[in-house]
């Protein structure tokens, strides 16, 4: 096949891309008792997907992405708590706006730096928000957070029930689908190609006259908004917000999920979140220390030998044994 047709084909939606969504719907009917867990997985996928945009495509290494997840969660939490604003969809929108605004503001100043300084700055931004949430107890509930939040019905029809996650699951699934389509469109667009260019070779990107920093800031902002939506979903589905939504642990966690799945390849977020959370669900409660040890060793092995994650390993195998590239 000639190269232009191949390129156009790769960017078109493929039939198999419907499979994960069909599988997700099948899970809804097959495992009615695990919908709470399923909802957490969907939220994590969305969060990891947002990180993929900056880390996998724009090549910005950040340790502070939970800042935006937390900003989204606290936005809907505080709106519901203090203003009684508990309509879910507008809550998602508000969370996206707030997190996006923080992303834009911090991106404009942070992305002037790179390397270690950038890593530190993202870390400090997150720590700053965490401390602010801890300190402003009147607004945020401080250390205890905001338990027992209640949210309205979706379209005035489907209510959230913290015991049965039926509505939450479908709501999270629909939100994830919409966000995924947006991210997919973005990464396959010329803008997405130029982000990949920035990741692959910064020097060359400058030399072709691309406005490198503006592109990075835009990507950072969009990614922050998506992370905010993920955080808002988390708060709405579970009915609480606490400090854990914006700690180092959450930032490191989502980084691990994305890396294990494979970054810069859209579906890495899905594979990583499902694999990680299933294992965590099965092992972490029963054998917390062994889980931690296994996780640590896995990360070391991945860093040393499998730098492109699970999907990357399959890709490499397929390339070795012939066949085309996706």
């Amino acid at each position: 096949m000639n190269a232009p047709m191949e390129l156009a084909r790769r960017h078109r939606l493929q039939w198999w891309e419907a499979l994960p969504w069909i599988a997700a719907l099948a899970c809804f009917f097959a495992f009615p008792n695990y919908l709470a867990f399923g909802t957490q997985v969907l939220v994590t996928i969305l969060f990891a997907l947002s990180l993929d945009l900056v880390l996998g495509y724009a090549g910005i290494v950040t340790l502070g992405h939970a800042a935006f997840f937390g900003a989204g969660a606290y936005t809907v939490g505080m709106m519901a708590m203090h203003w009684g604003w508990n309509e879910p969809l507008s809550g998602l929108l508000a969370a996206a706006l707030v997190a996006g605004a923080i992303g834009l503001a911090s991106g404009l100043v942070l992305l002037r730096t790179q390397g270690l300084a950038l890593l530190m700055l993202t870390l400090c931004t997150m720590a700053l928000l965490e401390q602010a949430a801890n300190m402003g107890a009147e607004w945020t509930g401080g250390f205890d957070g905001m338990p027992g939040l209640s949210f309205g019905k979706i379209f005035g029809l489907f209510g959230f029930d913290v015991l049965y996650y039926k509505s939450q699951y479908l709501y999270a699934l629909a939100t994830l689908l919409i966000c995924f389509l947006a991210v997919r469109t973005l990464v396959y667009s010329s803008f997405g190609q130029s982000l990949t260019g920035i990741r692959e070779n910064l020097l060359r990107m400058h030399a072709v006259g691309a406005p490198v920093r503006a592109r990075q800031v835009i990507a950072y902002t969009i990614s922050a908004a998506l992370a905010g939506v993920a955080g808002a979903l988390f708060a709405q589905a579970n009915g609480y917000v606490n400090l854990a939504v914006l700690g180092l642990e959450r930032s490191a966690g989502v980084l691990i999920v994305l890396i294990l799945g494979g970054y810069g390849r859209l579906y890495g977020a899905f594979v990583g979140a499902i694999a990680y959370m299933l294992l965590e669900h099965l092992l972490a409660k029963a054998y917390p220390t062994a889980w931690q040890l296994g996780l640590g060793v896995t990360l070391i092995v991945v860093a040393l030998f499998a730098r492109n994650g699970v999907i990357g390993m399959f890709d490499a195998l397929r390339r070795r044994f012939g066949g085309t590239r996706t």
Partner: peptide
């Protein structure tokens, strides 16, 4: 990644 993993381990 390596050093976070080392921390965990």
């Amino acid at each position: 990644l390596l050093t976070i993993g080392l921390n965990f381990a």
